[in-house]
Design a protein around this nucleic acid. Structure first.
Length: 375
RNA sequence: GCUGGGUUAGCGAAGUGGUCAAACGCAUCUGACUGUAAAUCAGACGCCCUCGUGGCUUCGUAGGUUCGACUCCUACACCCAGCA
């Protein structure tokens, strides 16, 4: 994998870059739509591509359960199998260790060795380790693999977060060792490490130091999206680490997010983002507008006879064709086209925003153009 | 016309003497959603207010029994089924 910074913004950590992977190159800052189980929900790979996405995510945990990575391997990997035919990043299952572990009937348990999972589909016991998670991602033929990390809830105690940092580093070392031993990076595949540390400055700094000592191709910041704690704290958690990040490697902020967050985090030097929000919100009937990047709800009675598109200034296929009135109706009667149309729009909003951000950094106008969002 | 069954909030449907403004589902309204157990979840949903162990009006209609009726009785209206 190769990463080149192509422009920087004065007075900011924001930069543009190009990330080259075996399946193509990616302009950063980039937003990566999430295709957990092999598809960005409700959309085809071609549709996602046509909106301007250059890379999408897949998920180790979900694809391990169904259909099993061996099936996908037979078809040359997830990218080909799904007809995406472009770069993919696969998440490792670290987040599922967190989210399934929080469930009422705890479906995951973290130990020194790895994570024990119970499949949320049939309850079958699974085990993920730093090593086997890389095996699975190699079978999926991902361009960018993620290490498995220990991602405690945002409200976790300092003691628990300290343990998570320790474990994340330990697992990171095992990951790199296995990666090199198995020569997994030889075809240009990349492995990213993940910084943890919750909301604690020293732990974030420690984690950043420890992870960056290892020869990862990229550095991710994890554990920041899982919060109803308030954005201030999340911002801080990223601030603790932002100026410590190695500028020669891409920075991936995991699980973010909302348009305003993307802008703010680009300012802090983040290059890559992923988030389920655009597609989940769409399925739940919410959409962004580019005017203020605020969320609106298509089911509101006020839209019953609204002849405007979702967003007056949006060039996406949905906004070119459909009125709010029609989309509201589709949503109310549960037509799947409503979810598809809103997914297309929401993804377009984020992908177009990234395009705008990149252009502004190249023109060194990022700070002024987005002055409403960054200080 | 006779016999039997039925009529409950926007709709469907529980409730068969008191704790019933009335379960539950749908519809509707409003929130939430951030490395996807999420086309999910939560709240409201007779009317009124100073929003409370508050007030008012309801269970086809009109009467009655009872301390007390959605629940029992009578009449009427309408609906369904069977028989004429």
């Amino acid at each position: 994998m190769n990463f080149q910074v192509t422009a920087t913004q004065s007075g900011s950590l924001a930069r543009t870059g190009v990330l080259e992977t075996p399946n193509g190159s990616i302009k950063t800052p980039a937003f990566m739509p999430v295709g957990t189980s092999g598809a960005v929900k409700t959309l085809s790979a071609e549709e996602v591509k046509s909106l301007g996405a250059e890379i999408i995510l897949g998920n180790t945990y979900h694809l391990r359960i169904r259909p099993g990575e061996k099936v996908i391997e037979k078809f040359g990997g997830l990218s080909k199998w799904s007809n995406w035919n472009g770069p993919i990043l696969t998440d490792s299952g670290g987040y599922q260790a967190y989210s399934l572990g929080r469930a009422k009937n705890k479906l995951s348990k973290i130990t020194e060795e790895g994570v024990k999972f119970r499949s949320h589909i049939d309850g079958k016991l699974l085990f993920f380790s730093p090593e086997n998670v890389l095996d699975i991602q190699r079978s999926l033929n991902s361009d960018i693999a993620m290490v498995i990390d220990d991602c405690p809830p945002i409200e976790a105690t300092e003691k628990r977060v300290r343990q998570a940092v320790y474990r994340t580093t330990d697992w990171a070392k095992r990951s790199i060792e296995y990666w090199q031993q198995q020569k997994m990076g030889e075809q240009g595949r990349a492995l990213f490490g993940i910084i943890q540390g919750g909301l604690f400055k020293e732990l974030r700094e420690q984690s950043a130091r420890e992870i960056q000592e290892l020869p990862f191709d990229g550095i991710a910041v994890g554990g920041v999206a899982i919060a109803s704690e308030g954005k201030e704290k999340i911002n801080k958690a990223v601030d603790y680490v932002a100026h410590l990040l190695d500028k020669s490697r891409p920075h991936y902020l995991m699980g973010v997010g909302e348009p305003a967050d993307l802008i703010r985090m680009v300012d802090k030097g983040m290059d890559m983002f992923d988030c389920v929000l655009p597609t989940r919100l769409a399925r739940h009937g919410s959409f962004w507008t580019t005017e203020d990047y605020q969320l609106k709800t298509i089911s509101h009675a006020a839209y019953t006879e609204d002849s405007a598109p979702l967003d007056q200034n949006c060039q996406c296929p949905t906004c070119q064709k459909y009125t709010r009135s029609y989309l509201r109706h589709l949503f109310m009667v549960n037509e799947s086209l409503a979810m598809r149309a809103l997914s297309i729009h929401n993804l377009s909003v984020l992908l177009e925003l990234m395009k705008r951000i990149r252009a502004s950094i190249e023109n060194d106008t990022f700070k002024t153009e987005f002055s409403d969002y960054v200080s």
